[in-house]
Computed example of a mutant assay.
Amino acid sequence: MSSSNPDITGVILVGGQSRRMGTDKAFLDLDGRPLIERALEVCREVCGTVLLVGNRPERFGAYALPMVADIYPGSSLGGLYTGLSHAITPAIFAIPCDIPFPNAAIMQYLISRRDDYDAVVPITAHGAEPLFAVYAKACLEPMRQMLETGNVRINDLYSHVRTRYVEKAELNALDPSGTSFLNLNTPDDYERARGK
């Protein structure tokens, strides 16, 4: 099946330590499928290519996808920078491996709003969602400068690039269940997702 956005690379972030969960979140089973496969499915539907960012190639070899190690290990901003650096497309869609209900319609909507912007970031009741967002190559240099100075707060990036925030009201119709931005950090989170 051809992607609807050949100029976008789906970057799945698989480098987290999963400390609070106690097990590798990418392989948590939900309805008979590991979380990584849910992220991969929507990326293949929406994006032209898919790239994994993390430092454990032995865990993900079965997926036969390119995997790159973090250039600046230890932070989500470093993961974004690594994925954007290695992407051959002008922009990426970043997605974490621990999102149980990734929504292709929301991904498409965010991508469709990127014309003249370097970052397109959804806003939910919990604030900005920087790890389910669009980033263009113009973000690389500001990201690098932040990482070099030890600032890994992704939200600080947005004042240095042309950022389009997509408010919750814009997304409500695409997310009727309100679950599209859940991510699983703890065993309690996992149990709640299994109950949905």
Rank of each mutant, 00 (worst) to 15 (best):
D115T: 10
R153T: 12
A128Y: 08
Y72P: 03
A87C: 04
E37Q: 11
S2R: 14
C139M: 03
K168I: 14
T9E: 13
E58M: 05
R192Y: 14
V14T: 15
A39F: 05
P142H: 03
G127S: 02
S2Q: 15
G79V: 07
S177M: 08
T186E: 08
S76P: 02
P6C: 11
R162E: 14
A39W: 01
N183A: 12
Q17Y: 12
C43E: 10
G15A: 13
E58F: 04
G195K: 15
V50R: 03
T89E: 13
I123K: 09
D29I: 05
L77Q: 04
P187R: 04
R192W: 13
E170W: 06
Y109C: 06
R153A: 09
L80K: 04
N155G: 07
V121K: 07
G83W: 09
T82K: 00
I154V: 03
P6Y: 11
N55W: 00
A64Q: 14
P102M: 07
T124C: 01
G78R: 04
A91D: 02
L131Q: 07
G54Q: 05
Q17V: 13
K168A: 15
A94N: 02
L131P: 01
S18E: 06
I8Q: 10
M107V: 06
Y190H: 12
N151W: 01
Y190W: 13
P66N: 08
L110I: 03
L80D: 04
S18N: 11
R153F: 02
V50F: 01
T149Y: 01
G83I: 12
A119Q: 06
P122Q: 04
L80F: 05
Y81P: 03
D175T: 06
G32F: 02
N151D: 10
A104Q: 10
A94H: 00
R162N: 14
S4V: 15
V42H: 01
V134A: 07
R56G: 12
M143C: 00
R33L: 09
M21D: 13
I154T: 05
Y158G: 02
I8H: 09
G78K: 05
